[in-house]
């Protein structure tokens, strides 16, 4: 139920209301998504989408940490 899928913002239509919308690409599919809850989002950024709403902008730098975490732990242990 809390399933939410990452997708890339390809366009934003902002009429200044609460109902800021944009197009988000998920793999090969493009959908209209409500962007009211990610007011700072830019075209090209990735968002997590749940029931038609973007709820979070994905942080590229943080996204890499899962791949370096074990090495960091090992380095800490070795110091």
């Amino acid at each position: 139920m809390c399933l939410a899928v990452p997708g890339k913002i390809i366009s934003i239509h902002d009429d200044g209301s609460l109902m800021k919308m944009g197009q988000v690409r998920f793999g090969g599919i493009v959908k209209e998504v409500n962007l009211a809850y990610v007011p700072s989002v830019q075209v090209g950024e990735y968002v997590i989408v749940h029931v038609g709403f973007a709820i979070s902008i994905l942080n590229e730098e943080e996204a890499q940490k899962v791949f370096s975490y074990l090495q960091e732990i090992a380095d800490e242990g070795g110091q």
């Binding site: 809390c2 009211a36 749940h50």
Partner: peptide, 17 residues
């Protein structure tokens, strides 16, 4: 309108709108 905190903003927006 069911859900956890994840869905609450979407439901809140529909009700508000």
């Amino acid at each position: 309108a069911i859900g956890f905190e994840t869905t609450a903003p979407a439901n809140a927006m529909a009700i508000h709108q």
